[in-house]
Simulated scan of single mutants.
Amino acid sequence: MGLEENGSLKVPDDVGNGAPASWYNGSPTPGERGPSVILGHVNALGGHKGVFADLRKLRPGAEINVSRADGSTAVFTVDHGTLYSKNEFPTLEVYGNTAGAELRLITCDGYDPATGLFDDNYVIYAKLKA
């Protein structure tokens, strides 16, 4: 997916099961040098869990397998996860160039029942293993 007219990242349409996750096409493909960005929902329509509902459970050292269009799999190792306020999102830190192939998994967090909106984003940082 690409960008909205206001410059924000498009998010995948929830087809009722909180899926799919989607790759931001302005970032490197998973396994290429730089931070590949994949977005996914934390929850889904009808009270279901989103594809990234359990993102906060990933711990350093966990492996993430990303299927690539060419049929290969890029394997990443989780470095850390960080919670950011949407109002203070560190764009350069998350999307900026990296020396090697890295992965960023991004979802919403910090649901505010008063507004019905998510105030934060949770980001997993991972590095290519194989």
Rank of each mutant, 00 (worst) to 15 (best):
F52T: 01
V15N: 14
S67D: 13
P113T: 07
F89P: 00
I124Y: 06
P90A: 04
A69W: 07
G16R: 00
V94G: 02
S67R: 01
R59K: 15
G2A: 03
G71D: 11
H80A: 07
W23C: 04
E102M: 10
D13H: 11
G47K: 01
S36P: 06
P113D: 13
Y122E: 08
A101L: 05
G96Y: 08
N17S: 12
G31K: 03
Y111L: 14
F76Q: 10
L105M: 04
T107M: 11
G100Q: 14
E63D: 12
D109Y: 07
L128I: 14
S85L: 10
D109N: 15
F118G: 00
G61H: 05
R68K: 12
N121L: 05
K57Y: 07
L9I: 07
D79P: 00
L58Q: 08
I106H: 02
L105Q: 07
G110H: 10
M1N: 13
G40Q: 03
G7H: 05
K127Q: 10
H48D: 11
L9V: 08
N87E: 12
V78E: 05
G46H: 05
L3M: 08
E32Q: 15
N6T: 10
G34D: 13
I124V: 15
G16E: 09
T115Y: 13
T77M: 04
L55E: 08
N121Q: 10
K129P: 05
D109M: 09
G50Q: 01
K86V: 03
N65A: 15
F76E: 07
S72F: 03
D79A: 12
L117G: 03
S72H: 09
S22H: 12
T29I: 13
N43C: 02
D109T: 07
G96W: 04
N43M: 04
E88D: 15
T91N: 12
E5G: 08
A44D: 07
A126P: 00
T77G: 09
N97W: 02
L128N: 10
L45W: 12
F118D: 15
N43A: 05
T115P: 05
N97S: 14
G34F: 10
P30E: 12
G7S: 08
P28K: 03
G100R: 12
A114S: 14
L39Q: 08
Y125H: 13
V94H: 01
A53N: 14
G116K: 08
S85A: 14
P90R: 00
S72R: 13
S27E: 06
L103P: 05
I106C: 08
V37E: 07
L55N: 03
C108V: 04
K127L: 11
A130G: 14
